[in-house]
Design a binder for these strands. Structure first.
Length: 435
RNA sequence: GGAGAGAUGGCUGAGUGGUCGAAAGCGCACGACUCGAAAUCGUGUAUUCCCUCACGGGAAUCGAGGGUUCGAAUCCCUCUCUCUCCGCCA
């Protein structure tokens, strides 16, 4: 949610942002509706003030005067009701549009229509060279009996998988390594619910808009308002519960920034991606993720610093794993509604012969905190909205693609990255047990 | 799943139709007293929205939504949540 006062001052900036982000919203319609709402609101409140005033005087009146006043108020009450009803109708539309107004991208964000126009800002690591014919991760996973996709599909449908044996142990090792690294860097770990309320989904701005990407519990899909019985959604990322952790709270300046790391599964319906990335572990319905979340002072310079920090953390993990990657500035058309700056880390995946997105680092400024109502008491005693940021630290199973493919050996085994060995009892290699 | 109790400001807790946005206490802030502190005394202490350059004014909010009424924290209906006990369960 954006600052409406700011919006009214410079609607063109938001018109421009909507255009660049490819957000379909009629800014002029909203301006008109907003004005209509304010006029009507004023009229209704004036009537209400009159009614309140007279009603307060009624008990002191007697006889004729009293009867007249009551009759007049009865009439006023009817008028008021009509006005209130119209106001309510307008506010439904107003509120719906308001939630779709975009955050304004920072100046450094490149303009572009989609992910093909993201801009590479740096590269790290050397691309692997194989002296043998390398296998892809699906083949490796099957041959080593550590990734069972057919049985995953049997049990839970398409885009499902089962990590098995050393594959399962490797996954956990990756997360433990990342969690340890963030622990050492001052992050507090939260293992949150993977179920979230409508408010949490809305507050983090997954809703409205992303309803069809979320699995809903006990409710039908495609809805814009909370309904019974459960009103719970499977989260796509720990960002949702962790960012919502302090919703409705006023934090002390001295306790900022809050550095949290959420560890959870995430669930995505992947609606509308039929036929896309169907093979292997790239695009699946359930992921496991170590997610960094920051709440900091509502100051662009501070959040920029935090953005760099969490991006560096993720890069540190990739470098420790010795996986070649690049960092891109995500262009306007590929950003979310509320994001003002976003970097992706893309990791080299031999089977794709290219870089594939493995991390996403986003700065929201006060877009989420306005919806979630997370404030802090500033140095001058006023209450301001915090800035929120989040970034993947590591996510599986997608990162297993580069790990398996890059660390494979000519004999079909996979070397365990050195930094992960302590988390696998010192194991150095994953070999085929049945061969 | 069964039975019961409850939801009021930062907290505790009064308040069953008319200056109640809300007593009182605690907490907190400021001031007085003090060398300083404690104690004591005094003053102040919710959020959101609208109008205004500002001073200030208005509206809404006592779990949520609806209703009755000139007027609702108080009456009626629906829902949600919390707590206790029993059952079931990782």
């Amino acid at each position: 949610m954006i600052d409406l006062a700011d919006f009214r001052k410079r609607p063109d900036a938001y018109r421009d942002a909507a255009k660049k982000k490819r957000v379909k919203i009629d800014i002029d319609a909203f301006l008109k509706l907003d004005e209509e709402r304010r006029v009507l609101l004023h009229a209704v409140e004036t009537k209400r003030a009159e009614k309140n005033k007279v009603s307060a005087e009624v008990p002191k009146m007697k006889g004729d005067d009293k009867a007249k006043a009551v009759a007049a108020m009865k009439e006023l009450g009817a008028e008021l009701k009509a006005g209130e009803e119209r106001l309510k109708e307008i506010e439904v539309l107003w509120n719906d549009l308001q939630l779709r107004l975009p955050g304004i991208p920072l100046p450094q964000v490149p303009e572009g229509k989609d992910d093909t126009e993201n801009k590479e800002i740096r590269k790290w690591g050397d691309l692997p060279k194989f002296a043998f014919e390398p296998k892809d991760h699906v083949t490796l996973g099957a041959d080593l009996d550590i990734v069972d996709i057919p049985r995953g599909v049997k049990v839970a449908g398409s885009r499902s998988y089962i990590l098995k044996g050393d594959g399962a142990r490797l996954e956990l090792a990756i997360h433990l390594f990342a969690l340890d690294l963030l622990h050492k860097r001052g992050f507090t770990q939260l293992n949150p619910p993977v179920l979230a309320s409508y408010d949490a989904m809305m507050g983090t701005s997954y809703f409205p808009g992303g309803e069809e990407q979320a699995y809903a519990v006990g409710v039908q899909q495609k809805r814009t308002e909370p309904i019974t019985p459960d009103d719970l959604y499977l989260i796509g990322t720990a960002e949702v519960p962790v960012t919502s952790y302090h919703s409705g709270e006023v934090l002390k300046l001295s306790e900022l920034p809050k550095r949290y790391v959420g560890f959870s599964s995430g669930f995505r319906r992947e609606a509308g991606t039929y036929g896309k990335d169907t093979k292997g572990l790239y695009r699946v319905h359930q992921i496991q993720k170590v997610e960094q979340v920051i709440l900091c002072e509502g100051d662009a310079a501070v959040s920029a610093k935090m953005h760099a920090e969490i991006l560096a953390n993720a890069e540190a993990v990739m470098q420790a794993l010795k996986l070649p990657y690049r960092v891109v500035d995500v262009c306007t058309g590929d950003m979310g509604l509320g994001q003002v700056y976003k970097n992706d880390i893309e990791t080299w995946m031999p089977s794709r012969n290219g870089y594939g997105e493995t991390h996403s680092c986003s700065t929201f400024h006060d877009f989420q905190s306005r919806r979630l109502n997370i404030k802090y008491e500033a140095a001058d005693g006023t209450k301001k909205f915090v800035h929120t940021l989040n970034n993947t630290c590591i996510a599986t199973p997608r990162v297993l693609i580069p790990i398996l493919e890059i660390y494979q050996n000519a004999d079909g085994s996979v070397t365990v990255p050195e930094v992960l060995r302590p988390y696998m009892g010192g194991q150095e290699k994953i070999v085929c047990k049945t061969a």
